[in-house]
């Protein structure tokens, strides 16, 4: 008859077990946090492109600036085809925009227009593709005005204070900027990878 054995409630047992392995639990919790944070950055970068793609289709059809989601303060302005990868570019190169897509520096002309168009992107999400870009590669840029093709003339590494790379030029130029080194761990890097391309006639 005395088979009844007192068992502590589940919640107590659970907390006992967690306490018994507190170091492991802590490590696991933090590990999950950072996995989540890292995954979140990538997920945001990948998923946002789908929403932006829809907004861009809309823009192409009716010519209106369409925010990709209701509360967005930006809108797609162009697409880039680099080495077979298509990227949708948003207006504005702020930290907020760059999390979702490469950002077009508003102070510069759009691709296809006279002058130096500057587009920046995160080295570890969208613009990781720039690592493989080589001189003479062709980049296609589409805006509401049409498609224009650019020929890569140089890739170089500059300091972040070197704003000369975004200065205007007389010819049609496309300048793509991302952080360097590509596999660097620290987000506060002082170096930038700059791809310059000249418009093909």
């Amino acid at each position: 008859m005395s088979t009844f054995r007192y068992q502590k409630p589940l919640i107590i047992r659970l907390s006992d077990m967690l306490w018994g392995h507190k170091i492991i639990v802590c490590c696991l919790a933090m590990s999950l946090y950072f996995f989540g944070s890292s995954g979140y950055i990538h997920a945001k970068a990948v998923l946002a492109q789908y929403l932006i793609k829809d907004a861009w289709q809309h823009t192409l059809q009716n010519g209106q600036q369409t925010p990709p989601w209701a509360w967005a303060d930006t809108f797609p302005v162009a697409t880039l085809d680099i080495n077979g990868e298509r990227l949708y570019v948003l207006s504005g190169a702020t930290g907020r925009t760059l999390a979702f897509a490469p950002g077009h520096l508003q102070s510069t002309p759009l691709p296809g227009e006279q002058g130096n168009s500057v587009i920046t992107g995160h080295r570890d999400t969208h613009f990781s593709v720039l690592a493989s870009v080589q001189v003479n590669d062709v980049i296609a840029a589409q805006t509401t005005e049409g498609v224009s093709y650019y020929n890569v003339v140089s890739t170089r590494i500059v300091d972040e204070s070197n704003v000369s790379v975004i200065q205007n030029t007389s010819q049609g130029t496309l300048t793509l900027i991302t952080c360097y080194p590509f596999n660097g761990l620290m987000p506060n890097t002082h170096l930038r990878w700059v791809v310059s391309a000249k418009r093909m006639p």
């Binding site: 950072f34 996995f35 944070s37 890292s38 950055i41 990538h42 190169a93 702020t94 930290g95 760059l98 999390a99 950002g103 520096l105 920046t120 992107g121 995160h122 080295r123 570890d124 999400t125 613009f127 500059v158 972040e160 204070s161 070197n162 704003v163 790379v165 975004i166 900027i177 991302t178 952080c179 596999n183 660097g184 761990l185 620290m186 987000p187 506060n188 890097t189 930038r192």
Partner: peptide
């Protein structure tokens, strides 16, 4: 300054 173009994703990973 040129825009900041790196995320801490890799560091966090």
């Amino acid at each position: 300054h040129l825009p900041q173009t790196a995320t801490p994703a890799l560091l966090h990973l």
